[in-house]
Design a protein around this nucleic acid. Structure first.
Length: 1057
RNA sequence: GGGCCCGUAGCUUAGCUCGGUGGAGCGCACGGCUGAUAACCGUGAGGUCCUGAGUUCGAAUCUCAGCGGGCCCA
């Protein structure tokens, strides 16, 4: 049987109870099991990095996923949804280093790589557990018990296998490349791991002495003096004009400089030259015959042995000097110039950021300290033309914030640039939500794709499965653990992480030993293989055949360059096709000011704080409804309160009829909707129709992943249709005590709507839905599915949809609003009945609405009668006043104008109106004759009958006749009395059906008589077993109060009997 | 500097695909209802639809330029 609920909506308690229930009954597994064999839906969870705590953005992300999956599940889909965890990489190494107090790789080596790896693993697993708990609090259902973890062997094998595929397809390459390098972490970092922020650097102009000409220099500019020891060449633009200038220094010496012509002035000014003379000019392409001496050749002996020439490059811009310092070991562009011209890739800087022995006198110095020294050395040699400072955007390591440097190092690459065209065509096969996420944003990113450096010189990561022979240098890429065991001849199990895997050797056919290269994978490569790793491929192939590629993924727009891209790249390598069929790109969470949430700004909102205050369902509704998924979400705590209030209203609506239903032993299992059909009123059919429409609206929204529209439809239905309208309409019907078919119809209809609601809200407010379901459905039908989430999504019953009725009801609602407005003007509050309401419709449809829903209109306006007048016809009781228009009458009648004005005012208004309307003119009597009046000479203003007020609505007008009669007044006062007694009953906390003794003193004889007219009615309404009303009644009781009713004083005393 | 997105009432936003009288909620002011009651409802004030130009009979909506914010890149 249905149970009454008495408590307020308290989400914290409710949600804890529901989550316990899910836990104990293993609801998640049962729901997934329930759909086995259905249409498959393969979802891949974008693995959050195991930082240990979730923030609002990650909460939003999981809430979107959860709502969509719950919706899919209810629609019969067999869902695969292992949660994922990204657990390798520098961030965890950096944290563990912090805990252990380490500052460099040497500390780790000293501590022991094995020990360090164990710490990292322990750390990652603990963080994962903490975060799982936080995600569960949101009511997010994913497969938490069997998540995929990047640190598992099965996962590592997926990465290995993929790299082997790359090698088989000739997409794997090892080579010297200039990479972004973090000198603190001593590793290459990906482009996507570089964080740009402002930084101050030196800005220096340096003279490079030309070899074949006395006292002549080419002038370069740089912000990285520490790269000067590595300088190999100078680049100029082939088509720029360069000048040879004889410049005079302030102390009278002369030197010859080569600078881009348009930059001569500013450069010489910076060098504080006293004057200059242009000796000649030439194009950049004419400069290539020049060679120069390295400025620090005496300090760096290796440099003295190398040639230094001028080369051409298109990337040179007409800024600074137009001549660019080229150090192929320290810059991407520089490296390109080096490759093209066969220059030595001279890189005398080690992985720790210190000069190596190749740097001669600078050996051992950290590049961080080298700028000053180099500048001093250049100055000493008279080669520093100018020095200054510059503030510019510069890349930093996103984990430790150290400024990055560029180093030419041996790295492993996947040749993504070879796959670009295929990638571009593949993404067109993917459904993007919104479409521009794929067609514009992602497309642009792919068009700029470069080869992917997948190697890192660290410890905590997936080891790169490349074994190289120490003797013959041949290499082998291992694809699986099994392959490694076989090739190495080891038996039993092995740990695939460093340092264990590093000790495994393979015999090379040449007789030598193959050892693993020391690098680990870029973590982006880990998550890139998620779609097959989560299917345990390559260990098991069946699931891959069955499920891959993913039907759906959804992540934030930062993942365009991240996971959307890395997955696509890896999948092109592995299988030659996109790993996902549809992608929903969502936004970012911002604070109330629209600023990014970050720890340093201190504006971070913790999901758990929100949950503690408002509950998870409120948080879910907020993030889902506040903006379109792909727009950024501004967090606003006031809005949370509003959402919470909405849920509270839904709760109250659900709670409201239960006491009556329970009292009447209403059993929905014994009363079919069909059986009450003949007793349904128009409003009952209306709410049933609206409920079906709601189902359709939510379906439509979910098809396009416009979750905000789904939520807003639900919201509007709850507030507008259910709470503000239907419940108001049916309240009197639920108070009837007898066995009444009309009441039964209301119960059954409400029940129907509630049951639909439990399902419609289930994907979005899973806790509240479950709570309602357990009472409404499980208490009535014990054989019903154990959880609301096992139910099928409701199918809209088209036969119940009546669009015309919905339109009519909308019109009635605007009439009711207009009549409230008119009442307010007439000063007659709703409690007091009015004799009639006159509706003047502007269309036939409005007239139909009134005819069809007259009783609703009467009830809601508290009117004794509704008078409907014809479309476009005036209400015949309406008076009009004719207002003459002097500015049109004057010119026509001149001297007689005054008489015409008076005649119009005095004329019979109705006949004047009729005549003007029918023939376009009218005659009025003026002293000494008649005058013809045309429509522009007169306008008519409505004159209300006494005590009538009017108001417009969007399709007509209403007139409220507030004239009082004895009956109306009697009823009004009776309701005033009833209302006050009810208030007092409430104050005494009496049960609804508890009897009372009531004593009422009314000192105004006229009002007393009016009230006594309805004495019986009053007694019944307030459940008075004894009731005394009179002029000098002693109004005492358990509770007694004095009241002022419209200026009449009343004293009321009540006591329970 | 480039790409994509966003900009509507004090605040949060709908409407923009496909041009035709800008709708809500919160807050504010006033009023109402009364066994959903620590709930609820009505009315009112409040808009250069970021700015400017263009297309058009007509632009919040389409186009271009600019300004501000977000993400990503250089």
């Amino acid at each position: 049987m249905l149970e009454e609920i008495t408590s307020q909506y308290s989400p914290e308690k409710l949600e804890r109870k529901i989550q316990d229930f899910w836990e104990k009954s293993d609801a998640y597994s049962k729901v997934r099991e329930h759909r086995r064999g259905g249409k498959r839906f393969f979802f891949v969870d974008g693995p959050p990095y195991t930082t240990g705590h979730i923030h609002l953005g990650t909460a939003w992300n999981k809430i979107i996923k959860d709502s969509i999956l719950r919706y899919r599940s209810m629609n019969g889909y067999d869902i695969l949804d292992r949660a994922g965890w990204d657990m390798h990489g520098l961030p965890i190494e950096v944290k563990v280093e912090g805990v252990l107090g380490f500052t460099s790789k040497k500390d780790i080596e000293k501590y022991g790589v094995g020990n360090f790896i164990e710490k990292c693993k322990e750390f990652a697993l603990n963080q994962k557990d903490d975060m799982t708990e936080q995600f569960r609090m949101l009511g997010a259902w994913l497969d938490w018990k069997d998540p995929y973890m990047t640190l598992r062997d099965e996962y590592i094998e997926a990465a290995w296998w993929t790299l082997k595929r790359a090698q088989e397809k000739d997409l794997l390459e090892q080579g010297k490349r200039v990479v972004n390098w973090c000198p603190r972490c001593e590793t290459a970092i990906a482009d996507s791991e570089v964080e740009y922020s402002d930084r101050d650097d030196p800005s220096i102009f340096v003279k490079f002495r030309l070899k074949d000409e006395e006292n002549a220099y080419v002038v370069i500019w740089t912000t990285t003096p520490w790269t000067i020891p590595s300088n190999i060449a100078v680049a100029v633009h082939p088509s720029f004009e360069y000048s040879k200038v004889k410049a005079k220094t302030s102390d009278g010496r002369e030197e010859i400089l080569i600078i881009a012509s348009q930059l001569v002035e500013p450069v010489l000014k910076k060098g504080r030259y006293a004057g200059y003379e242009i000796l000649g000019s030439m194009l950049g392409e004419d400069l290539t015959s020049l060679s120069y001496e390295h400025p620090l050749a005496d300090k760096v002996p290796r440099q003295a042995a190398m040639e230094h020439n001028i080369y051409l490059a298109d990337f040179v811009t007409a800024e600074n000097t137009g001549c660019v310092h080229i150090a192929p070991g320290h810059g991407m562009d520089d490296f390109e110039v080096g490759l093209k011209n066969n220059l030595p890739i001279f890189c005398p800087v080690g992985s720790d950021g210190r000069y190596t022995e190749a740097a001669g006198d600078y050996t051992g110095m950290h590049i961080r300290d080298a700028n000053t020294t180099v500048i001093e050395d250049l100055k000493e040699r008279g080669l520093l033309l100018a020095r200054g400072k510059i503030t510019h955007r510069y890349g930093h390591c996103w984990r430790c914030k150290t400024p990055i440097i560029y180093l030419a190092t041996e790295q492993w690459f996947i040749k993504i640039s070879d796959l670009k065209e295929q990638m571009l065509s593949e993404i067109q096969q993917v459904n993007w939500y919104p479409s521009w996420a794929g067609s514009a944003r992602f497309r642009d990113w792919i068009e700029g794709a470069r080869d992917w450096c997948v190697s890192r010189q660290r410890y905590w990561g997936i080891p790169i499965p490349v074994w190289k022979c120490r003797t013959c240098d041949s290499m082998h890429v291992v694809g699986t653990k099994k392959e490694l065991l076989e090739m190495s001849g080891l038996s039993g199990d092995i740990e695939l992480h460093r340092p264990y895997v590093d000790s495994v050797t393979i015999d090379c056919p040449c007789g030598g030993k193959m050892k693993r290269v020391e690098d680990v994978f870029d973590v982006w490569f880990d998550s890139a293989v998620a779609s097959w790793a989560t299917l345990r491929f390559p260990q098991k192939a069946e699931d891959f055949e069955k499920w891959w590629p993913a039907d759906f993924i959804t992540e934030g727009h930062d993942q365009t360059r991240g996971w959307f891209y890395s997955q696509l790249g890896a999948s092109m390598v592995a299988f030659g096709k996109a790993p996902y069929k549809s992608v929903l790109m969502h936004g970012f969470t911002l604070d109330g000011e629209g600023k990014k949430m970050s720890k340093s700004l201190g504006n971070v909102i913790e999901p758990k704080d929100v949950i503690a205050k408002y509950g998870a369902d409120t948080l879910r509704c907020f993030v889902l409804s506040a903006s379109a998924p792909w727009d950024d979400l501004k967090f606003n705590s006031e809005e949370l309160g509003t959402i919470n209030r909405t849920l509270n209203i839904l709760w109250n609506v659900y709670r409201f009829p239960l006491p009556y239903m329970v009292l009447d032993k209403f059993d929905p299992s014994k009363v079919s909707l069909e059986s009450v059909r003949e007793h349904m009123r128009r409003e009952d059919r209306w709410i049933l129709s609206r409920a079906q429409t709601l189902i359709n609206d939510v379906n439509k929204a979910m098809d396009q992943y416009t979750l905000h529209r789904a939520l807003r439809s639900i919201n509007e239905f709850v507030l507008e249709d259910l709470s503000r309208w239907y419940v108001q309409l049916i309240r009197p019907r639920t108070w009837v005590e007898a066995d009444d078919p009309d009441k039964l119809a209301v119960y059954r209809v409400l029940y129907e709507v509630f049951v639909i609601m439990t399902r419609v809200i289930a994907p979005f407010m899973p806790h509240l839905a479950e709570e309602m379901y357990q009472n409404l459905v499980r208490n009535v039908y014990p054989d019903a599915p154990e959880s609301v989430h096992m139910n099928d999504w409701p199918v809209a019953d088209e036969s119940l949809i009546d669009k015309e009725l919905e339109t009519h009801m909308d019109m009635i609602r605007s009439m009711v609003e207009a009549s409230s407005n008119a009442r307010q003007k007439a000063g007659r509050k709703l409690r007091w009945p009015v004799s009639r309401i006159v509706v003047s419709p502007s269309s036939e449809q409005v007239a139909e609405a009134v005819a069809s829903l007259k009783s609703v209109l009467m009830d809601q306006t508290n009117a004794k009668d509704i008078v409907l007048i014809g479309v476009g016809e005036p209400w015949d009781e309406l008076g009009y006043e004719a207002i003459p228009n002097p500015s049109t009458i004057g010119p026509v009648y001149k001297g007689d104008a005054g008489k015409v004005l008076a005649a119009i005012k005095g004329a019979d208004v109705m006949s004047l109106r009729r005549s003007l309307a029918s023939s376009g003119q009218a005659e009025v009597d003026i002293p000494g004759g008649k005058a013809t009046v045309t429509p522009e000479m007169v306008k008519f203003e409505e004159r209300m009958p006494e005590a009538v007020a009017s108001a417009e609505f969007n399709a007509g007008s209403v007139y409220v006749d507030a004239k009082l009669t004895r009956e109306l007044e009697s009823e009004g006062y009776a309701r005033e009395v009833i209302r006050r007694v009810q208030d007092m009953r409430k104050e005494l906390d009496l049960a609804v059906d508890e009897g009372i003794r009531a004593h009422i003193r009314i000192t105004d004889q006229r009002v007393l008589d009016l009230v006594l007219d309805l004495e019986q009615h009053i007694a019944k309404e307030i459940r008075a077993e004894v009731q005394v009303i009179g002029l000098d009644v002693d109004a005492n009781g358990t509770l007694s109060k004095d009241w002022d009713v419209e200026g009449v004083s009343m004293s009321i005393g009540i006591s329970p009997t």
